[in-house]
Write a protein that binds this DNA or RNA. Structure first.
Lengths: 150, 150
DNA sequence: CTCCGATATCAAGTAAGGTTGAGGTCAAGC
DNA sequence: GCTTGACCTCAACCTTACTTGATATCGGAG
């Protein structure tokens, strides 16, 4: 009996605001059906999709990236455990590479502490081309794009 | 001979856009003087301040946080190497705690891969109270603030 | 002296990720 | 039958971190 879930229920289960869920629908992250009263009808799997969104956001992904990832889920059939596990594996790799980037950064920082050199041209810490730690950082979309300006 | 630096020079040295530097002044991150023609006059130390801003941004700090950190620099005298090293030490700790958070997250994720459980109520991966990885993620400033909604 | 390039100000626009409010509908409970 | 709560839409607003454009002025080169 696929009774379907109301937006309020999904909101309570995910901790998202109702308005946020509607926004996510607008962004194509979930595609609930409608009942005859035009109210959104979610399935259990949608809670999982939204959980995915929340976790991915914590990793700093933009909604557009997350949508792209979710679009890789099979459209016709229900996503299986294996499908989700595949996505999780992608996460794992992303986490790995972040840890690696931060570790690298820390090493450089260790080299800088003591000399006090935060000057751009000399300090290994600032390298605009090392984008590893830059992802998902908000509107600094142009950062690093003009290092050839001079 | 403290000749003072023009905004264009500082922009070239830091890789920042002139408009960005003016914006940073507005936000209180630098306080250049003015010449008689009302043009901004920067000191060498301002390049260092701006470098600090860039590095901190890479770590995901908001400008407001960065300003707070910079405000800890001694106001009267010129910042010494030790002052900058102290700030760098704060960075180091932040990086450490991020790596730790991500490592934890990875461990949880490993526990989830295979079971495909991305369901919020069961999966250890999603825990709204674990804010370690949440900082600097843009406008999701309310995230985790409504876990008591239900 | 004149012109150009760098600078100045100020208002408005942009992008992401939402929230808020006005105004309307629907189904259930009393 | 009426009210209440949950839902609907649509437009407007919010924050952060800037950019863009209009318009004006400064200062050095020629």
């Amino acid at each position: 009996m696929h009774k379907g879930l109301s937006i309020g229920y999904v909101a309570r289960r995910t901790g998202l605001a109702v308005s946020a869920i509607r926004y996510y629908e607008e962004e194509g992250l979930v595609q609930p059906g409608r009942d005859r009263g035009d109210r959104r009808v979610f399935q259990r799997g949608d809670i999982r999709r939204l959980s995915f969104v929340l976790i991915a956001q914590r990793l700093g992904f933009a909604l557009a990236d997350i949508r792209a990832a979710l679009d890789d889920l099979p459209q016709g059939r229900n996503p299986t455990r294996a499908d989700w596990a595949r996505l999780a594996e992608g996460f794992r790799q992303e986490i790995d590479s972040r840890i690696e980037g931060l570790t690298l950064l820390r090493g450089k920082l260790d080299g800088c502490i003591g000399c006090g050199c935060l000057s751009l041209d000399r300090c290994a810490l600032y390298n605009p081309h090392d984008k590893a730690a830059t992802r998902g950082e908000g509107p600094r979309y142009l950062m690093g794009d003009r290092s050839d300006e001079f």
